[in-house]
Design a protein around this nucleic acid. Structure first.
Lengths: 141, 141
DNA sequence: GTATATGCAAAGTCTTTGCATCGTT
DNA sequence: AACGATGCAAAGACTTTGCATATAC
């Protein structure tokens, strides 16, 4: 995927800021707050303004390249918009966020369009709980 | 459910403000922003402070009576915490939010605890799309 | 060269908090 | 009387916006 080309096709410009926000998100494989993206980018390049990070994220979202996920109270995170809907497992103990690759989201989609006359466009499934490595049964490993 | 009794059991007091926040949420059957709850309460009673609404909601949430759901960007809503997990259908067109009563959430839970060593504690499933009454196929009703 | 994007700072929105006062037990 | 809760206003966190300058094309 060439971001620059896509941007230009839509009449936008490829700036270093946009490139770096995009790169940071891809490198991290998701789950970053706007602030974390800003830190990550600034760690590499001289300086980039937080406002520009927000603007870049909005634009990339509008182009369908990234999306924001609400993992809970004050947990707005940004990630690369993978075509195959995954869902999120948020561990209450270690705070880790994992993508779950199953077909659950697909099944939800099928269930809804089939029976209920609701046309699903976006499905957000967030599960809070305790992950395997933080679960008591696993402590003795 | 007697809120007053539960509050007192836990060492808190039943104040008119708390009572009215609780009543407003029950009457609306959910999906209210803090501001909407405030408006609703103030419409009936002389005056209640927004800060008190937030404090009441936090307390009720702590007691497990209500919970906050993130329906998307800037859409934090409060609702009565029903024991049976429902999920939310948010219509992009009319903005209506419906509870979906199916067993999908239960199935997600079973799926996760069975196969994946992740102990789910809370499952938030939010579906954005177009509801039956806003769907093109239904316009000719 | 020109229109777009950035940086900076200010404003906006939503939520929380400190503190004096009020009300319940 | 004592402790907790409220109201008010100020502060906080996060995000957006106006405007002058810089830059991609």
């Amino acid at each position: 995927m060439d971001v620059g080309e896509l941007l230009r096709t839509e009449g936008y410009r490829l700036t270093p800021q946009r490139q770096m926000v995009w790169n940071a998100l891809r490198a991290a494989d998701g789950h970053l707050t706007a602030e974390q993206i800003h830190d990550e980018v600034t760690r590499i390049a001289p300086a980039i303004n937080l406002a520009s990070v927000y603007r870049s994220l909005s634009l990339l979202a509008q182009l369908g390249l990234v999306k924001e996920v609400q993992l809970g109270e004050g947990m707005g995170r940004w990630e690369v918009n993978h075509p195959d809907d995954k869902f999120h497992l948020v561990c209450r103990v270690c705070g880790r966020v994992d993508h779950h690759p199953g077909d659950l989201v697909e099944r939800v989609r099928a269930h809804l369009s089939g029976e209920h006359n609701f046309s699903p466009e976006g499905i957000d499934l967030v599960v809070h709980g305790v992950c395997a490595r933080c679960s008591p049964a696993q402590v003795a490993d």
